[in-house]
Design a protein around this nucleic acid. Structure first.
Lengths: 128, 128
DNA sequence: GAGAAAGTACGAACTGATTCGTTGACAACT
DNA sequence: AGTTGTCAACGAATCAGTTCGTACTTTCTC
């Protein structure tokens, strides 16, 4: 069975996002991608990814000389984990108030609102 | 004019929550309240609150011997700030995907879903 | 084979947050 | 006046996360 997702730190999350995007990648790949945004040394990324292996955030294939890394947990479960944490820390554990706050500050367009509406309908159906 | 809300750390947020709840309070008050949950020394809370004064997260009335502290920024703006941060870090800046994720994992009851629906309707009206 | 290039591993420094002990000021009590 | 209690102020230790220099290994190229 899947274990609970591990809460990644900010730097770890940035790396995970690249891995989710690109699929299995080498340190070089991740570093190249990450360097577009912030400025970060190669060994910094390497070290971080090594730590992530220890923590179980990523898996590593060492068969080639350049090791190939892969995210060990999906994007969805990780998002859920981070969301729940914020909900507990800042919204008294209430999903409702979190969603309300996000909605009223949202710059979501009409199409996006429709998508949210659809999910809401589905949820309401499940509830009865 | 109101400055942008300052992002509080976890410990600072815990203290802010007490201040939002209780209104202006002494360190003793906050410590008492906080001690229900976690176990934390008095001077730890004091130090944290002193730091928060420097950062501008709280204001302090020093006229009495026991200083009285007050949150300098509201709960709403702080929540918005934290939400935006998470949105950028983990949801590619998309409010929609954040809300969708929160909704599908939510344990919100029917009444709460209705409230969300109402906000959604209001938003949709504003958009056109 | 010698040297350059591309990797990994590791340790040390630095930062921000957190925690708490100690000190000194002031007030209340006897 | 002296003792006890309450408070703010500070300094030091610790911890997690991050950053990068350096050393070592493997591979490639001439």
């Amino acid at each position: 069975m899947a274990t609970d997702p591990i809460r990644p730190s900010d730097g770890e999350l940035a790396i995970l996002r690249v891995l989710w995007d690109r699929g299995p990648s080498t340190v070089r790949d991740v570093h190249a991608d990450l360097s577009k945004g912030r400025d970060m040394g190669y060994t910094t990324v390497l070290k971080l990814m090594q730590i992530m292996v220890d923590k179980g955030l990523v898996t590593r294939d060492e068969s080639a000389r350049s090791h190939v890394y892969q995210a060990a947990q999906g994007e969805g479960p990780t998002q859920t984990c981070l969301l729940r944490e914020l909900m507990d820390k800042a919204f008294e554990g209430s999903a409702k108030s979190l969603v309300l706050r996000a909605l009223s500050e949202s710059s979501a367009g009409t199409a996006e609102l429709e998508e949210i509406q659809a999910t809401l309908d589905r949820l309401r159906k499940e509830r009865r």
